[in-house]
Design a protein around this nucleic acid. Structure first.
Ligand SMILES: [Zn+2]
Ligand SMILES: [Zn+2]
Ligand SMILES: [Zn+2]
Ligand SMILES: [Zn+2]
Lengths: 132, 132
DNA sequence: ATCAATTGCGTTATGCTATAACGTGTGCGA
DNA sequence: TCGCACACGTTATAGCATAACGCAATTGAT
């Protein structure tokens, strides 16, 4: 999918996520955008919904937060299953892709005749700096 | 870890999960246990915390719900990373394990010197029956 | 030009998920 | 007996997400 021109609200939300050090919750985004006229959670959630659809933002299910895609050039819809390593100490998130993991999981679902729609892989732990 | 004798509340929560057809939210569990004296969410969450610790229950991060472990004999702490296929139509959950996936993910984190604590793999989609 | 459909937006209200903080009682070893 | 750990109960609060309404701008066909 090609990313359409973002609306004002979508751009504001995306910019906040891009500039952030780590993942942000919807309500944190809301707080950062109050000066730009944001007043209600729905303004954030509606923008996020589109940004997720366009593949320029990812949702981290295990921490109810959102991050900008780490592969801006790529089309996230094409690079297979996305995996995340999330540091529980500093919040740093690393996005990566592993074709072998994709292949194994898709092999398993095919064996079950399961039809996958959305796959989540999230590793929570400590990054190198925080584990030291 | 060996599972200690469950307390009354822990047993009640576990029984509800075992008898359930699919994953349940904490508040759904609460409703099912009102006749047994449950009045507050914390009674459920405290029991779940222990059951998760003992490895007899799993949390599904992507749907904020809980399921009894599908491998009662096994020690879930030993069978590596657990993966789930979750049908978004009927709610059916299939728990499985794939050593190759474990191996690839653990290989990646070692390369990053990332120290994993908890890994989530959840595939949402349609089961064979519902996809038909 | 006009109408209908779509999309984005703003607001209010509500619902769902999870934990903080305080106090009680019980069992058990020092 | 004292101190501690643990389970439990209750109230209140925090954090996450969506329903439902209405309005405005855009688009695209008639
Ligand atoms: Zn991405
Ligand atoms: Zn870190
Ligand atoms: Zn299990
Ligand atoms: Zn199904």
């Amino acid at each position: 999918m090609t990313t359409p021109q973002l609306t004002k609200n979508q751009s504001l939300v995306f910019d906040v996520l891009e500039k952030a050090e780590g993942p942000l919750s919807a309500y944190t985004i809301l707080d950062k955008l109050r000066d730009h006229g944001f007043r209600a959670p729905l303004q954030v959630y509606r923008a996020l919904e589109k940004l997720l659809e366009y593949g320029v933002v990812h949702r981290l299910e295990s921490i109810n937060s959102f991050v900008a895609c780490a592969h801006p050039g790529d089309d996230c819809h094409s690079h297979g299953i996305v995996a995340f390593a999330i540091c529980e100490s500093c919040g740093q998130v690393t996005e990566f892709h592993d074709h072998e993991v994709d292949h194994r999981l898709m092999g398993w679902v095919q064996g079950q005749k399961f039809k996958p729609e959305k796959t989540t892989i999230e590793i929570r732990g400590l990054c190198e700096a925080c584990a030291a």
